[in-house]
């Protein structure tokens, strides 16, 4: 990893990570699954005083995290979540990783077993640019978030915001918060309308729980 140490970076983290960080209560226990180089964890540890852990598949990512004093293990969302006890964390974060897992449904169930809440973000395949590329060019869409050729993409389980919402319903998971986000931030206009968000959200960010709503 040739990037600057995390400590030297400006506090600006990716727009979806900012949104996720905003959902997390200070001082809570957080597991970041697929934490990359630890940018979100680093932010949460330093600005929200969380007890943070990370799991990352790539060795470079793990090394970068541990070099920066974060608690990160090399591991796989598909196989390693099963080790953790129930409700071990207040939040389990899965950012831009669900679509690369072998069994997203099982991973989702694990997230909500080991965490009281899960925060999941994923690229929205219903985004209008994806639809347009398929419709006009007749080729597999590429966006900033899913910028791979079809034959080398790690993203084997892409879905739309609607698809994901449906899966949560099927699994009896409560959606506490739901955001459609593009690279500038939350999509404005007709927010809250399913078709609009599914069309104009480049990614979806969901906060999920199995617990009954306390509101």
């Amino acid at each position: 990893m040739n990037g600057p140490p995390l400590a030297d970076r400006p506090d600006a983290i990716r727009v979806d990570l900012q949104l996720i960080a905003g959902l997390i209560e200070p001082g809570s226990r957080v597991l970041d699954v697929g934490c990359g180089d630890g940018a979100l964890l680093h932010y949460l540890v330093n600005h929200k005083n969380v007890d943070g852990r990370g799991i990352e598949l790539s060795q470079e990512g793990v090394n970068a995290g541990v070099r920066n004093g974060l608690s990160v293990i090399q591991g796989d969302a598909d196989t390693d979540l099963a080790d953790f006890p129930e409700n071990a964390f207040d939040y389990v974060v899965l950012s831009q990783t669900l679509q690369a897992t072998r069994d997203p449904r099982q991973v989702l169930e694990q997230l909500l077993r080991i965490g009281r809440r899960a925060i999941v973000s994923f690229p929205n395949f219903g985004y209008w640019r994806c639809r347009l590329q398929l419709l006009i060019r007749g080729s597999m869409p590429r966006t900033q978030l899913i910028n791979y050729d079809w034959y080398e993409t790690p993203n084997i389980h892409l879905c739309t915001i609607n698809d994901f919402t449906q899966l949560c319903d099927d699994l009896g998971i409560t959606i506490e918060r739901r955001f459609a986000v593009n690279h500038e931030g939350m999509v404005g206009g007709l927010r809250g309308l399913d078709w609009f968000e599914n069309m104009f959200g480049e990614q979806g960010v969901f906060m999920l729980t199995r617990e009954e709503s306390t509101d």
């Binding site: 060795q59 608690s71 953790f84 006890p85 964390f89």
Partner: peptide
């Protein structure tokens, strides 16, 4: 060892070095 520590939700880092 890491699996056993995870089962306790322990604070653990795990690195395999090349």
């Amino acid at each position: 060892v890491v699996h056993a520590l995870n089962a306790n939700a322990a604070n653990v880092s795990f690195v395999e070095i090349e």
